[in-house]
């Protein structure tokens, strides 16, 4: 791949990095990344990956922009309210960087479409708010041997883990989805807006590290932080032999759509009817 003068200028701060250079930037430009969810986490992830020049960004979300989203979903602007999130995100990505090819999927990731959609990508980023889809992403990526970044935020806390085939998966740590409504989601419990940016940019950095091969990924380590104390911790983990999907006797061998929390579905309906 030959960079134009304009591209060399655009990506100069990456190219200047000894660990990245022209070669690393080429890897970024050839990268294909799927972002699941164009919300609080998906927004900063998409913005930074677009700016970095990731060649193909797939973005999947079935929702429309709601006024209550704008407190943290920084890729959506006030005039975007009621617009499909993937369209709003695609517009901003194209404005930031016309080099990026955006594939917008205005739908939910489901057990039926997950494997087919993720197969086209090098890396998957979980930017979803709900456990059914978090487990679906994990299972699909483990089954398809696809690396991904898990991210979760709640109130003042965030956590993230990167998976590569052979390392601890999300289910190694969290065996199965919590019962619907057992654990509040952001739409129920609230979240400090900037937390989404803190965690999403960590996930974006993991994607760029993966694509360029620079540094040590957050594999076999769960990073957690609390913004009230600003304490960060990484908890070392390893693949769990009893893991239902990647353990030695897997019980999860196909994909399932787990039940959604009722109030999440209600809030979706409310958004759609607006």
């Amino acid at each position: 791949m030959d960079f134009t003068e304009e591209q060399i200028q655009r990506y100069s701060r990456h190219i200047l990095l000894q660990d990245v250079g022209v070669e690393g930037q080429e890897k970024i430009n050839n990268g294909k990344v799927l972002i699941v969810g164009a919300g609080g986490l998906g927004a900063p992830i998409a913005l930074y990956l677009a700016a970095a020049g990731v060649g193909t960004i797939g973005i999947i979300d079935g929702d429309v922009v709601d006024l209550s989203n704008l407190q943290r979903q920084v890729i959506h602007f006030t005039p975007d309210v009621n617009k499909p999130k993937v369209i709003s995100a695609k517009e901003k990505i194209n404005l930031i960087n016309p080099d990026v090819k955006v594939i917008a999927y205005q739908k939910l990731l489901t057990a039926e479409n997950a494997l087919e959609i993720i197969q086209d990508y090098d890396f998957v980023v979980d930017g979803t708010d709900n456990f059914p889809v978090k487990f679906l992403i994990n299972d699909a990526c483990v089954i398809a041997k696809k690396p991904f970044s898990h991210g979760g935020i709640l109130r003042f806390d965030g956590q993230t883990l990167t998976y590569k085939p052979g390392t601890a998966c999300y289910r190694c740590l969290f065996h199965s989805p919590p019962p619907p409504n057992a654990v509040p989601t952001c739409s129920q419990a609230g979240v400090l807006g900037a937390i989404a940016g803190m965690l999403g940019t960590i996930q974006a950095a993991e994607v760029l590290k993966y694509l360029t091969g620079v540094g040590d990924l957050l594999t076999n380590r769960l990073l957690t932080f609390n913004a009230k104390t600003m304490e960060f911790r990484t908890i070392k983990s390893k693949p769990n032999d009893n893991c239902p999907v990647c353990g030695s006797h897997p019980t999860v061998t196909g994909l399932v759509d787990y039940e959604q929390a009722v109030c999440d579905i209600e809030s979706h309906r409310k958004n759609k009817n607006k």
Binding site: G37, A38, G39, G40, L41, G42, A43, D61, D63, R72, Q73, D126, G127, T128, D129, N130, F131, K134, G151, G152, I153, L154, D157, G158, Q159, L173, F174, P178, V183, P184, T185, C186, V191, A196, L199, G200, L222, T224, I235
Partner: peptide, 8 residues
Amino acid sequence: LYFMGGGS
């Protein structure tokens, strides 16, 4: 370790 949702 605690469950944490996300930001969609």
